[in-house]
Write a protein that binds this DNA or RNA. Structure first.
Length: 740
DNA sequence: TTAGGGTTAG
């Protein structure tokens, strides 16, 4: 058998022999035929070059048909060089529409649609009218950006030339383009112009709705499709519809598809369809069904496994998720991220970071999804150094810096108390969504910048971004932190009037907080009593917190009673009540509650402080001696005590409710976890370095007082994030104005 | 034309 290369060489030598033995003029007709037929056997640019250069040498390269064939080869053949075609094209005096179209097809093939459009414009400039082929060829290589830039203009041209309502290929080209670029309504208009579309076009429309998350419209279109006699769903349609049901958590819809088409054998299941089924069951929490599909599969791929892992992670069965994750034959970056995210969901932040390190050891490169999870973990841990590292990693590795990343960075910086850097990220962000604005409002409010948070809110409205219920939580928090009661009340009613958001439990909690902290305890109680929904323990807890600040024993007892009826095991309530009794010197009541706690086996949640040092997150609990430098820490604490007392600090034992003498009360105060963290920070970090601590409970009055004095005596900035807010200590003052 | 992982509060 003669190979194509040999065949080509033989033809070329034959052609050359003819050229030598005949004068070109007398054989001009047969000459033209020869290289054209040669071009048909040629399959590389090298061969094409040979033919072309020989014809040029012979001065016979200007034949229109020959040049057309050269352009066709270069534009349509896989190994063809489109730029070569363009050079040839530019030499043709008056190219036909066919040649213009072929050039555009070439540009689409190599994804240079911008050049395709330029060529199209040039064609119009030369007064050449496009034909039926022009648009489908040109549109084929369009990206989303290109569609948004030129799509509508080209559609108008197609309408003007009468192709849109007469040519199926033009219609299909535009439907594809618009549907998959997010301009789904435009696509639908063209779709509705025709009837009897083939299944692929229905699928393209469904896919378009899915991409812009308009799942209800996907469902409606699918119902229409089922009614249409000329088309039947195929496996792609079912994958699309199962995806719709999965994303909209419509288990019944998904089961309908499964029972009608798959179980009945109307559509043969394949890997993607089975994966779509696993995803449906997993996202609806039906793990037995998901596992059933998974177990019955002949072949599984990384997506099948990842969907199972995600399903277990989402149903809080992190152990099972991990079991499947460990069994996976191969893991890609999505699998790792799914597992990391499972830990994040369970608030197992340290495991998040450990697994991320393992991921890096496995040489699997993280992407922007992974990094969002990492940043979120850093945010919760208050791990600024690690968060900064993650940012550098993103920049260095050119990980897509999208809105999700920006939002996660803002949140991380705020949760680590770094307001300036959060602002910087915000200002540099190209696209801002409601999450961006909400993160700013909440972040500023929690860091004590209530006024700025409210300015941010008006900027958000000016930018025509619609706030959601969480944005309003931030807005109400901002009012609480700066004590703007009237403004807060206005926002609370505007929330429903202007934005149609019905206040939920948290909003009522915010209102109770707002009024309570401002000392309007009666009004706060009225809010609770007039709520249209049954108040939960958080709402009552807000009132209880306000009672602590304003030392209102009677109301505190009422609130505590309500909470304990809802949550008899809520240890924090007993503690808060004890704090209040201690502060009001109601020793007898305090003893009663203490006794009750003992009887009911209620334990105080141990105080715990996290502090990051050199990229390691250290955890301190009250009276902790587990740290390797424990001895030095306690020695430092002892030394600090004297230095601080000399500077005017005097221990505040008012909230200590231990049944011990005054001296022991002071000792117990010294064991608080944030004090241990502060002492460790002072011995292990250089002068002037900001100390950042994350505390799991509310800071006690004494630790708060001590932190203020520390900031003055050692000239250090301290940022403590406690359960509800931030405390920025500087020069002996705190950003919360002693109100928390 | 089709399947898996991400951000805001409490």
């Amino acid at each position: 058998m003669i190979s194509s290369v040999t065949k080509f060489s033989l033809s070329l030598s034959l052609f050359l022999k003819r050229m030598i033995s005949n004068t070109p003029n007398s054989y001009s007709h047969s000459f033209v035929k020869s290289p054209i037929s040669l071009l048909q056997t040629c399959n590389s640019m090298y061969q094409l070059n040979q033919i072309h250069s020989h014809t040029i040498k012979m001065g016979l390269s200007s034949n229109h048909l020959f040049l057309t064939r050269v352009i066709i080869f270069c534009c349509t053949n896989e190994s063809g060089d489109v730029y070569y075609a363009r050079k040839v094209f530019d030499e043709i005096p008056q190219p036909s529409v066919f040649i213009w179209n072929t050039m555009m097809k070439g540009y689409s093939r190599i994804n240079c649609s911008e050049s395709g459009v330029s060529l199209y414009k040039l064609m119009l400039f030369h007064n050449i009218k496009p034909d039926n082929f022009t648009f489908p060829f040109m549109l084929k290589g369009f990206t989303k950006d290109m569609t948004l830039k030129y799509g509508k203009m080209l559609l108008n041209h197609a309408v003007k030339h009468g192709f849109l309502d007469s040519n199926l290929f033009v219609q299909k080209g535009f439907i594809h383009l618009f549907s998959l670029s997010g301009l789904v309504d435009l696509a639908r208009k063209i779709f509705d112009m025709g009837d009897g579309w083939e299944v692929v076009i229905w699928n393209v429309m469904l896919s378009g709705y899915n991409r812009v998350k308009r799942f209800e419209e996907s469902k409606r279109l699918f119902i229409e499709m089922e009614k249409c006699e000329c088309v039947s769903p195929n496996s792609v349609t079912l994958v699309l519809m199962l995806s719709v049901c999965s994303k909209s958590k419509d288990l019944d819809g998904g089961k309908y598809i499964y029972n009608k088409y798959i179980k009945e054998g109307i559509v043969e299941p394949n890997l993607k369809l089975e994966n779509a089924l696993i995803d449906l069951f997993s996202s609806c929490g039906e793990m037995d069904a998901a596992r059933g599909v998974f177990d019955d599969m002949k072949t599984r791929d990384v997506i099948s496994w990842t969907s199972i892992v995600t399903g277990f992670a989402n149903t809080c069965r992190i152990g099972l998720a991990r079991k499947y994750f460990d069994q996976m034959p191969e893991r890609d970056y999505v699998s790792w991220t799914a597992m990391i995210d499972g830990y994040l969901r369970m608030n197992h932040f340290k495991e998040v970071l450990t697994l991320f390190r393992e991921m890096q050891m496995s040489n699997v490169k993280p992407d922007e999804f992974t990094m969002v999870s990492i940043l979120t973990a850093c945010a919760h841990l208050g791990a600024l150094e690690l968060g900064e590292w993650a940012k550098t990693y993103i920049d260095k590795n050119k990980i897509k810096n999208d809105t999700f990343i920006g939002n996660a960075l803002i949140d991380m910086y705020f949760k680590c108390g770094n307001v300036e850097k959060a602002m910087k990220i915000f200002n540099e962000m190209q696209k801002k969504d409601k999450f961006t604005w909400t993160a700013m409002i909440v972040g500023l409010a929690n860091n004590g910048h209530g006024e700025e948070a409210l300015t941010m809110f008006s900027n958000m409205l000016e930018a025509s971004v619609t706030p959601d219920e969480i944005t309003y939580i931030g807005v109400l928090c901002a009012c609480t932190h700066v004590g703007m009661v009237t403004k807060g009340r206005n926002f609370f009613s505007n929330m429903t009037i202007q934005h149609g958001i019905k206040p939920n439990m948290t909003h009522y909690g915010c209102m109770v907080d707002l009024l309570g902290r401002a000392g309007q305890l009666k009004e706060a109680l009225e809010v609770i009593l007039n709520m249209p929904i049954k108040p939960n323990s958080i709402v009552w807890g807000s009132l209880l917190g306000a009672c602590r600040i304003h030392k209102n024993v009677q109301l505190a007892e009422m609130a505590a009673k309500e909470i304990l009826e809802l949550e008899p095991e809520n240890g924090a309530v007993y503690v808060l009540l004890c704090n209040i009794y201690a502060a009001c010197k109601k020793w007898e009541n305090l003893h009663k509650v203490r006794k009750l706690m003992m009887e009911r086996g209620i334990k105080k949640t141990p105080g715990c402080s996290l502090m990051e040092m050199n990229g390691i997150v250290y955890e301190f609990v009250a009276g902790d001696k587990s740290h390797p430098q424990s001895k030095e820490i306690y020695a430092k604490l002892e030394k600090m005590k004297q230095e601080l007392i000399n500077a005017g600090y005097s221990p505040d034992t008012s909230e200590v409710f231990l049944d011990v003498g005054e001296e022991d009360k002071e000792t117990s105060l010294y064991l608080h976890s944030e004090k241990l963290a502060i002492a460790y920070a002072l011995i292990s970090s250089g002068n002037g370095v900001t100390i950042r601590i994350v505390k799991n409970l509310r800071m006690c009055v004494d630790c708060h007082l001590m932190a203020k004095v520390v900031s003055k005596v050692y000239n250090r900035e301290l940022i403590v994030r406690d359960k509800t807010r931030f405390h920025h200590f500087k020069h002996g003052l705190c950003s919360c104005n002693n109100f928390w």
